[in-house]
């Protein structure tokens, strides 16, 4: 799991304001390229979109009419420009499936997905630090060994397996105390249905804590072994003072880049988790849009997810660069 840490690139030369600006401009450029790639890939999807909308009973003329109506016969460049300007002005067209504006479809779903991701993150970060530091502090105790073993297990488990087992345990087979499906009625805010959120949030949190807690544990052990802390110990400073004033801040700082990578992974890890719990977010929308070839919805969802993913990756880069320059 150390690979995620080292994935971060280092700025050559020191960290400066101009470096930051350049990094952000580059980020915008990369996002533009992402949109081009996404558009090209999706426009090449096989199957006649018009035929898919009209179904098997439609005639060839009806299909041709609809193609024209949707602008599918225009050149790719024109279609892309139209789409990009639409995205930037919030006019992302309408779903090919039911004619509703894409914004109306993915707006509420974005809220649902980000609510799920953020609640999980809010839980992951403090729990991971506490568990990781405690485990490092009690190094080689039964607790520590158990934590290391369990976290190895969880990092090896695919998310859908964790989800399925939690459903069987808490909702359907064994305990039956929580809803097994997390349906949020349209128009409702997800937090109006806390019982429905418990299992998906637990799944994401478990996976995040097991991963990040492990990194915090490693960083904390490193920090405790650092010359700085050893010096402080020699100087006779109290254990608690060393722990809270020196080792802890260092460990947290070292884990920060990884934490924002965990954030990125959590935001997108919602795809599988949403599917398992039938949660109405961007992930289920992507799977369903892929299946029904609803291009405008597919493009919008993936663009949102890719942007979120990229922003968190960028944040990881910047945090790590700041860490190094310090």
């Amino acid at each position: 799991m150390s690979s995620l840490m080292t994935r971060v690139s280092v700025p050559r030369g020191g960290l400066s304001f101009s470096w930051l600006v350049r990094r952000l401009l580059l980020g915008v450029f990369v996002l533009l390229l992402v949109s081009v790639l996404l558009f090209l890939v999706t426009q090449a999807l096989p199957g006649d979109v018009a035929r898919i909308i009209l179904g098997k009973d439609a005639t060839a003329e009806q299909v041709a009419d609809l193609r024209q109506q949707l602008g599918l016969d225009r050149s790719l460049v024109v279609q892309y420009w139209h789409w990009l300007t639409g995205v930037l002005t919030g006019e992302m067209g309408s779903s090919l499936q039911n004619g509703e504006p894409v914004v109306d479809i993915i707006g509420p779903r974005m809220l649902d997905s980000f609510a799920l991701g953020l609640i999980s993150l809010v839980l992951i970060l403090p729990i991971a630090v506490v568990v990781g530091v405690f485990s490092a502090h009690q190094r080689d105790s039964a607790w520590d060994k158990a934590f290391v073993a369990v976290s190895s297990l969880f990092t090896a488990l695919p998310a859908f397996v964790v989800g399925m087992l939690l459903i069987a345990l808490f909702a359907t087979s064994v305990l039956g105390v929580l809803p097994g499906v997390s349906n949020i009625p349209p128009g409702d805010m997800p937090w109006w249905h806390p019982a429905e959120l418990v299992l998906p949030v637990t799944t994401l949190t478990l996976m995040g804590v097991m991963y990040l807690g492990r990194l915090v544990r490693a960083s904390f052990i490193d920090a405790m072994n650092s010359e700085y802390v050893q010096m402080a110990t020699l100087k006779g400073l109290s254990g608690r003072r060393i722990l809270f004033r020196h080792a802890l801040p260092n460990a947290v700082a070292a884990s920060l880049p990884a934490a924002s990578l965990v954030a990125a992974v959590t935001i997108t890890g919602v795809v599988v988790v949403e599917y398992v719990y039938s949660y109405p977010g961007l992930g289920t929308a992507v799977v369903s849009a892929v299946n029904s070839h609803d291009l405008p919805v597919l493009q919008a969802c993936i663009l949102v997810l890719a942007t979120a993913y990229y922003v968190f990756n960028l944040l990881a880069d910047i945090l790590s660069a700041m860490g190094r320059s310090r």
């Binding site: 990369v30 996002l31 992402v34 996404l38 890939v41 999706t42 090449a44 999807l45 096989p46 992974v265 997108t268 795809v271 599988v272 992507v286 799977v287 892929v290 299946n291 070839h293 993936i302 997810l305 890719a306 942007t307 993913y309 990229y310 990756n313």
Partner: peptide, 15 residues
């Protein structure tokens, strides 16, 4: 890197 792994594969497999 901006395309999460699962999304990346889904996109191309469906295509």
């Amino acid at each position: 890197l901006s395309f999460p792994e699962i999304i990346f594969v889904l996109l191309f497999v469906s295509m």
